[in-house]
């Protein structure tokens, strides 16, 4: 710097801090557009659960009573849960992938608060989960077999949506354990297994040894909660199961995040 030029001094106090830790709709819009043009996400979110519903939902006993509705409705709620869980888990795994790509570090050089980043990711997972649930429900309406009162229909969908947060946390956790694109290779079959054990695909017979094991798996509790408006029956063990697994996955994700010694 030559002595003849006097640089304009910077007045640091004239600079503003963004409100709400950087939370804004532009990011949500760009992130949403980003997810919607990802063909794999769209396949798992829209087509796959709907296709599963159509193949499982065509059982001969589809019109038998199931709580306040019929068996087809029961299967529809289950498939919506599976689709939304898969979507949320892949969204969670993306958090870890973005960290591996150095994007999280890039964001740390902006005013964005890390908690706000996670909040925005959670909101996106909810939006995408809602898309997945809607896809299965619209398929159900189009097919015409599921039957239950409208308020039950809505209550099931809303409960399912919030239950998917358990799998968003699982996605973050697994994303850290298995870096990169491989996370979905683990999460895909893993969630399918949990869904079988969680009474989501095929009803398990109560009292069998496999049922005893299944009761302890992560999909079991949330599935009972999601179908509660329909079945009218919610064992307290299911609530404990859901809360416990949510706690375990959040703790696991937080543990891996803090253990991550790579540059942020």
């Amino acid at each position: 710097m030559s002595t003849s030029t006097i640089p304009t001094p910077v007045d640091p106090d004239a600079r503003r801090v963004p409100p709400m830790g950087g939370f804004n709709l532009t990011v949500l819009r760009i992130e949403l557009r980003r997810m919607l043009r990802n063909r794999r996400t769209m396949f798992f979110t829209l087509l796959f659960p709907a296709a599963l519903f159509l193949s499982f939902g065509g059982q001969p006993n589809w019109n038998d009573n199931a709580g306040h509705g019929n068996v087809a409705a029961y299967i529809m709620v289950s498939m919506a849960l599976y689709g939304a869980a898969l979507t949320a888990a892949s969204g969670g795994a993306m958090v870890a992938m973005e960290r591996a790509l150095g994007w999280s570090r890039q964001l740390r050089l902006t005013p964005l608060n890390p908690a706000v980043y996670i909040l925005m990711k959670a909101l996106l997972a909810l939006v995408l989960g809602a898309v997945a649930i809607t896809a299965v429900n619209v398929t159900g309406i189009a097919q015409g077999k599921p039957h239950m009162p409208v308020h039950v229909w809505i209550e099931c969908a809303v409960l399912t949506l919030f239950c998917t947060m358990v799998f968003a946390a699982l996605g973050v956790f697994v994303g850290y354990l298995v870096p990169g694109e491989n996370a979905m290779q683990v999460l895909g079959p893993g969630l399918a297994l949990f869904s079988f054990l969680g009474n989501v695909f095929i009803p398990l017979d109560e009292g069998t040894w496999i049922y005893r094991i299944a009761e302890w798996t992560p999909m079991f509790g949330v599935a009972e909660i999601s179908r509660w408006p329909l079945t009218g029956d919610l064992p307290w063990t299911a609530v404990v199961n859901a809360v416990a697994w949510f706690g375990i996955f959040v703790a696991g994700a937080a543990w891996r995040m803090s253990k991550d010694t790579a540059r942020v």
């Binding site: 801090v17 804004n24 990011v27 557009r33 973005e98 150095g102 005013p111």
Partner: peptide
């Protein structure tokens, strides 16, 4: 190196970053 999301466009990346600052 790094610090970029490959599936965003150039403009989206800049707009995303810009939205995080007050000015």
């Amino acid at each position: 190196t790094g610090g970029l999301l490959k599936d965003l466009t150039v403009r989206e990346t800049v707009a995303y970053t810009a939205s995080l600052f007050a000015d």
